[in-house]
Amino acid sequence: MSAILHACGLKVRFGGLEAIGGVDLCVRAGAIHGLIGPNGAGKTTLLNALSGFVRLAAGQLRFNGHEIAGRRPDAIAALGLSRTFQNIRLFGAMTVLESLLVGAHRQFDMGAGAIVLGSARSKVAERAMIGRAHMLLDFVGLGADTAARVATTLSYGQQRRVEIARALMSSPQLVLLDEPLAGMNALEKQEIATLVRSVRAQGTTLLLIEHDMQIVRDLCDHLTVLDHGKRLADGPPRDVLADPAVQAAYLGRGR
């Protein structure tokens, strides 16, 4: 399998602090790639750097054959990299269906004139995307009745699913999930894990941050461990989790 995302020597600085200090990362196409590490290790920062939300101080970053270091988040998203956020960020005052359509923003390409005149083509495009949104709602396990509800009034678990569905609307090649299982009970975690697997089954690569080692071990094909902004280990879950350095980092014995 070829690498869909290849990062080399990534560095991120906040003022004098080096949050990410030269991390290499290689995500293979079709993988479920886990990103783990203790609190403050720089996992979310790395995700933000990959998706263009944080400026890189140094390093190369190739996604799907494009050099994307220094590009804006929207340009990176347009290339097929989609993401969710650690603290759910749904659009207030929008219904679930509308939120999902925002996720499909790049799929629309008709001009303002066509929209104002209500051209057949623009209606076809809207219909297609609305159809897709309903499909995805079904796919992430939300009932048809949720489509018309204001997204921020849903339960926490439902909001997570809406966010995942929104990220999938653009038919991305790589989805970054920032702690998709946070705050869920065991049953919900299993449901989301199943969802992640079926996303992968459709041919989409996933990179996710997670703390639950049991889930990570079962779900991921490959793990990268971060600690203090450095890559501590990288490899198949079984090897990585057996690594004494990783265990030390998690148990807080220092290095």
Binding site: S51, G52, F53, R72, P73, D74, A77, A78, S82, R83, F85, R89, L90, F91, V102, G103, H105, R106, R166, S170
Partner: peptide
């Protein structure tokens, strides 16, 4: 930010 993340 979330909007930019959606490719806008």
């Amino acid at each position: 930010d979330a909007a930019a993340g959606m490719g806008i």
